[in-house]
């Protein structure tokens, strides 16, 4: 394997890790506030469709991003309504949202575009195009560092940089601000937050809204940057991988970035090679597909460190007891 191949695999790792990272951080906000969210997949899918559809109709990818984010936040509001206001089962609500998005996107796509549940291909301003960082071309010829800068770091869409900036931003917001302290407290001990005179319901809705926003960007990235348009079920389980990455990272922002990069790397390798031959031993491509899930189960089982979720996760808060 030569240097250029490694660069290419790492480059595609970054591309594939971006939607995982955004969705993972989305889940981080929600679950840290005590709202389990297995509806990441559905929110991404809805955002992917509405961003691609809006971009295809208006020709502006920014309007697409806006529409996608709005769609995702509407589903988030539904999740909040079910799990915060009506104290329903958060997991069941997440499952419902996933199906709702899977069905509605195809239904609307068929109605609007009549192309078998897809949007027209996006061209020109309808997509997020690659951003060339300063001096990328000039430095391309420098040995080793040149290709790393011009191929690996430069030349991604703006959303990729945004996603990676979200990591320190999330860390700062959660661990260095009053809002973050309260948000984490709501997920650990909502009664204490309530006693301090802060609205548990308000904090949880805020967390769910941030979750919707980030999922929306993740979905828009899928349909308008990674690919050019929406196809049926295009999230392909990424929401669940993001969930796995979140557990793998034990609900911490920086670790979330590394676990998303790891899972993105696995996807990139599985995409490039079919079966991997190591001497006489063959690793089938299916093993690569299953690896993120297997790793997560191992982590969950507590064989490699213990993943302890926020203590009040999944429980609706009842004020009067």
């Amino acid at each position: 394997m030569d240097f250029l191949t490694i660069i290419q695999i790492l480059d595609s790792t970054i591309r594939l890790a971006t939607p995982l990272l955004l969705a993972c951080l989305a889940g981080l906000f929600s679950e840290r506030a005590g709202i389990f969210d297995i509806g990441l997949e559905g929110k991404m899918l809805a955002a992917a469709f509405f961003s691609a559809a809006t971009a295809a109709i208006t020709g502006s990818v920014w309007l697409g991003l806006l529409a996608g984010t709005l769609a995702s936040m509407v589903l988030s509001a539904l999740h909040g309504l079910a799990s915060i206001t009506f104290r329903g089962n958060q997991l069941i609500s997440g499952v419902a949202i996933n199906f709702l998005a899977a069905g509605m996107t195809v239904l609307i796509a068929q109605d609007w575009f009549q192309q078998g549940g897809r949007t027209p291909s996006l061209i020109g301003q309808g997509r997020f195009n690659a951003v060339t960082l300063p001096f990328a071309d000039a430095l391309a010829d420098v040995p080793v560092l040149g290709p790393i800068y011009s191929e690996l770091i430069s030349g991604h869409s703006i959303l990729v940089y945004l996603a990676f900036l979200c990591v320190p931003a999330t860390w700062w917001l959660l661990f260095r601000t009053r809002f973050g302290l309260r948000l984490r407290a709501v997920g650990e001990n909502p009664a204490a937050v309530d006693t301090a005179g802060i609205s548990v319901i308000g904090m949880r809705y805020a967390a769910v809204a941030i979750c919707g926003l980030l999922c929306g960007i993740a979905g828009a990235y899928l349909a308008t940057a990674l690919q050019a348009g929406f196809v049926k079920d295009m999230t392909a389980g990424r929401g669940y991988i993001a969930l796995a990455a979140l557990i793998f990272a034990k609900w911490r922002p920086w670790h979330a970035m590394f676990s998303c990069l790891l899972f993105g790397f696995l996807q990139a390798v599985a995409l490039r090679y079919q079966n991997i031959h190591i001497g006489d031993f063959v690793i089938p491509v299916q093993a690569m597909d299953a690896l993120p899930y297997i790793l997560t189960v191992v982590i969950l089982a507590g064989f490699v460190g213990k993943a302890i979720p926020p203590r009040a996760g999944g429980e609706p808060y009842v004020k009067e007891r």
Binding site: A82, G88, N89, V95, A96, L100, G103, L107
Partner: peptide, 16 residues
């Protein structure tokens, strides 16, 4: 799929 989602939503999550 949409009907299925709505049934899950109303009978499960929005039961209250």
């Amino acid at each position: 799929v949409v009907i299925q989602a709505l049934v899950i939503l109303f009978t499960g999550a929005l039961d209250n």
